[in-house]
Design a protein around this nucleic acid. Structure first.
Length: 868
RNA sequence: GCGAGAGUGGCGGAAUUGGUAGACGCACUGGAUUUAGGUUCCAGCGCCGAAAGGCAUGUGGGUUCGAGUCCCUCCUUUCGCACCA
């Protein structure tokens, strides 16, 4: 056996052995129970980053653990290969996105292999391959047939200089990131998927999932199912004439119909038809509507902007009092939620209150606010609480539920409204005016309208050799792509040049892994592996990706393609890996990010970053704080250096011992060395033992206390590590437990034959316990401890119950809740005996100061607390 | 702005069900080994205090025999907000 730990020699050798034996190729049938664990597929941005290392190492550790526990385990891998960065790289370097993407995949695949992850590469897929995205197109058409896909207009960010649609990420403070031009909102036709049709099921089936509670809560809130009343505020005579829209009035939805008597005005979004009508005769309002068009469409921006509004001069009438209520345009009303119009009750809604104060509108309290005086001077949170109606005519004295019931009944009698369920969730707009994505399989014919591309003409292949120039999609400028004939009338027609949102690609790839090469979307192999037993990925995907994938799976089920209701039985949301972010405004008003290694960074005495200068020009760069490692912000850390200096096992060990997987971590490369030292120490321990000759592991025989304690610790540790890996998924504490146990082992003085047998047992089991995290080193060490056997064939070590039997238990003694002493009591001691022993303790006596105990609390196996 | 998290030594973190706060490491300090650097080994390491002991888990309050853990307040910070993936 080598006396030195040499990962660079061991790792390629072990990896070759795995490849030669096809060790990680999972059969599609087995007498063993299946365990399907998947990590969210990476975007091939160029290199792996630490987030990937964390993600796939967690998955890999679970793979090995479950395999040792007797499961048929599958861990696949693929590439989320469509998307914006490839187009940006193409523009920057003049290389077509296809070439750039394939090169990145090749490089990153090598890195994955160097990390030694137990990936079944026979199932690898890339979403930019026609074999994959043809099924996006095929399924899109099936959904269209079922009415689950439809077309309507949607609002996008428009850069008036580049004449192109911008992604939200490309809008910085309301301006285009390349041009610095003020962005405008623009309405364009887009395809939508009817996810709202599944809203109820998407909420209700969350309950049965093994997901973190906060993720389920986020999804519930996102879907935002609320029960309320939808009703019409009838137009007054003049407004009815002006609107002439076939409707009788302004439709609004409220969850607080109990406050209906407090309506003092109504508000509509700037994009609402009523606002447009009013603007025709009101230049000031028209100018305001133009102003509202400026800026991007991001909700965070809309919600934080200053609340502004203007009266429209149009009126509706209160459904009960028939009083005239003026309609205002408010920039805080969202066209995309509900009907784009709200009743305003400033007395009991904080936003309406602020708006009313700003514009001097009436505030009319109609709910008793806890018996206290209502003051319109300043908003109080209690104004929003449910209570008993006052100042509300016939509804006075009713409380929340009764008031809503009464109001809904009266509205219904008038034919103006009724109770309704409302969702915050909106349908999923999937059209993107971009090049690098799945072409939408629709032909636009002047005569026949939108016509589906027939199935036998799928896939509509995306040309992969175009280079975009930043001014719109190159597909729309490539006649050889868009010129076609109508499948129906065979006249000249034009293909839809939009592509699909990349969330489409990631909504079902985990099912395609199971059946590579299938001549259909999925086949019976998917029924064997689905659903996923564990899905692992970043917390940033808690809502959108996970919700879309759940919807897609349910749609596949309803089309007979899947037999599951939910794709992800269990979910592990890994925390983000963070790093410092540095940027600078460009001359044009755009933004340029800098990688930390390109900068000289200054810090204060506490080590807090203050600022930085760029090495390339010596000019200052601003510090933007801490944030997720990302390609676009250029603050990622490449694990390659670590792999080359210390080996993959050290990198794996380091990320797993650093923190629990669900925590965010701020990157620091200072303690990597310690991980390497530990592996070297482990190697030396095994080497020292093996050089003296291996022996059969301890089976039976008399042991002294030192050896009994060591075996006790070992078998406790086996239990704990299994619990940490399998249930808690907290790998840092598993590693700490093994280190503790090995610290006890290295303190062992005994060198007798029976001690050597115990040493053999300890080392074998320690190697097995660590093998999910450091499989290369563990493989090499195992073949030294058990020549002729392979680590991958070993089951999880068994716990010897007899090693866990203890004669005495250590208890803590407290006086008035403060720690005052320790006590060793026989395991069989009764409560009374324990109390007596505690009272007899010398230090305890001292703190009792002769007083009589009022109460003695005994927590079996833990502590005694004496209260005086 | 709204939704969901997080905050414990110089640093990463542990404390799993309300029961010994700081496990296990990193860094640091002292010592041994070494020609030297590195390695390895031993010891120390929350704060105050000579000690006894006291104080301490972002802030301020509360519940409890007992609170890092539960409740309320405020502060800081991360993630998401529908076209980054």
């Amino acid at each position: 056996m080598e006396s030195q730990y040499q990962p660079r020699a061991i790792e390629p050798q072990v990896q070759k052995q795995w490849a030669d034996t096809r060790a990680f190729v999972a059969p599609d049938a087995s007498p063993k129970p299946k365990y399907y664990c998947v990590s969210m597929l990476p975007y091939p941005s160029g290199k792996l980053h630490m987030g990937h290392v964390r993600n796939y190492t967690i998955n890999d550790a679970l793979y090995h653990f479950m395999r040792m526990k007797g499961f048929n385990v599958l861990m696949p891998m693929g590439w989320d290969a469509f998307g914006l960065p490839a187009e940006n790289a193409a523009m920057a370097n003049g290389v077509p996105p296809g070439q750039w993407t394939r090169d990145n995949i090749a490089y990153m695949k090598k890195q994955c292999q160097a990390m030694g992850w137990a990936i079944d590469w026979t199932r690898e897929l890339a979403t930019c391959s026609p074999d994959y995205y043809r099924w996006n197109q095929w399924f899109f058409l099936r959904l269209w047939e079922k009415g689950l896909v439809y077309k309507k207009t949607g609002t996008v960010n428009w850069d008036p200089v580049d004449m192109t649609v911008l992604a939200n990420e490309q809008v910085i403070d309301g301006r285009g990131w390349r041009t610095g031009a003020v962005v405008e909102k623009r309405e364009i036709p887009m395809w939508y998927m009817r996810i709202t049709q599944y809203a109820d099921e998407l909420v209700d089936s969350l309950d049965g999932l093994g997901w973190p509670e906060q993720v389920k809560q986020m999804q519930r809130n996102w879907i935002g199912r609320s029960y309320g009343v939808e009703f019409t505020l009838p137009y007054d005579e003049m407004t009815a004439k002006r609107m002439n829209d076939g409707k009788q009035g302004l439709v609004v939805f409220t969850t607080r119909a109990d406050t209906i008597m407090g309506i003092t005005f109504a508000a509509v979004a700037a994009e609402h038809p009523l606002a447009a009508e009013a603007a025709k005769t009101n230049p000031k309002l028209a100018a305001f509507l133009e102003e509202c068009k400026l800026g991007g469409v991001q909700e965070a921006d809309l919600a934080t902007q200053e609340k502004k509004g203007l009266p429209t001069g149009l009126f509706v009438t209160h459904p009960f009092t028939k009083e005239k209520v003026e309609v205002w345009v408010g920039n805080y009303v969202l066209m995309s939620y509900g009907s784009g119009a709200v009743m305003a009750v400033p007395g009991h809604d904080e936003r309406d209150f602020a708006f009313a104060k700003q514009y001097g509108l009436e505030i009319k309290p109609v709910i008793d606010v806890g018996g206290q005086q209502y003051s319109t001077d300043a908003w109080q949170p209690r104004y929003e609480q449910r209570g008993v109606n006052v100042n509300s005519g016939k509804y006075n004295g009713l409380s929340f539920d009764a008031a809503i019931d009464a109001v809904a009944k009266d509205l219904e009698a008038l034919g103006l409204g009724k109770k309704r369920v409302q969702y915050r969730l909106r349908d999923w707009g999937i059209s993107r005016q971009r090049y690098w994505g799945t072409p939408i399989p629709i032909v636009q014919c002047a005569r026949c309208g939108d016509v589906a591309v027939p199935d036998d003409q799928l896939p509509v292949v995306l040309p992969d050799n175009l280079v975009p120039d930043g001014s719109g999609s190159p597909l729309a400028k490539t006649p050889s792509f868009f010129e076609t004939r109508c499948p129906k009338c065979h006249g000249p027609a034009r293909r839809d040049t939009d592509t699909m949102d990349t969330f489409v690609d990631s909504s079902w790839y985990f099912l395609r892994y199971t059946c590579p090469g299938a001549p259909s979307m999925v086949d019976e192999r998917a029924q064997y592996w689905a659903p996923l037993d564990m899905y692992i990925g970043g917390i940033e995907h808690a809502i959108l990706h996970l919700l879309y994938a759940r919807f897609w799976t349910k749609a596949m089920r309803d089309l007979g393609l899947a037999k599951i209701d939910e794709p992800f039985t269990n979910l592990l949301t890994q925390g983000m890996v963070l790093n410092h972010i540095f940027s600078r405004r460009t001359d044009k008003g755009g933004i340029e990010y800098f990688a930390p290694e390109e900068l000289d960074i200054t810090a204060d005495e506490e080590g807090k970053v203050q600022g930085a200068t760029a090495r390339k020009d010596g000019k200052p760069v601003s510090y933007d704080g801490i944030g997720t490692m990302s390609k676009s912000k250029r603050n990622g850390v490449d694990p390659q250096d670590m792999i080359e200096r210390y080996g993959a096992d050290t990198a794996r060990f380091y990320v797993m011992q650093a923190s629990p997987p669900t925590d965010t971590v701020l990157w620091s490369d200072e303690s990597v060395e310690g991980s390497f030292k530990f592996l070297r120490r482990l190697w030396t321990m095994v080497h020292d033992h093996v050089s003296a000759g291996i022996v059969p592991r301890y089976a039976n025989g008399e042991l002294n206390k030192e050896l009994r304690d060591l075996r006790f610790k070992l078998h406790r540790t086996i239990d704990k590590v299994a619990d940490d890996y399998g249930r808690r998924m907290q790998f840092n504490t598993a590693i700490a437990a093994v280190r503790e146990m090995l610290n006890l082992y290295t303190d062992m003085k005994d060198r007798s034959p029976v001690a050597r047998a115990v040493a053999q047992e300890v080392l074998e089991d320690a190697v097995l316990l660590l093998s999910p995290i450091v499989p290369h080193a563990a493989s090499a060490l195992w073949s030294e401890l058990r020549p002729g056997t392979a680590l991958l064939e070993q089951p999880w070590p068994a716990v010897d119950a007899s090693a866990l039997v203890q004669d005495t238990i250590a208890l803590v003694v407290q006086v008035n809740g403060k720690l005052r002493g320790h006590l060793d009591v026989p395991a069989s001691a009764s409560r009374e005996q324990v109390e007596a022993m505690a009272l007899a303790d010398v230090t305890v006596q001292k703190f009792l100061e002769g007083k009589t105990p009022k109460k003695i609390i005994v927590v079996p196996g833990r502590l005694v607390n004496i209260v005086v």
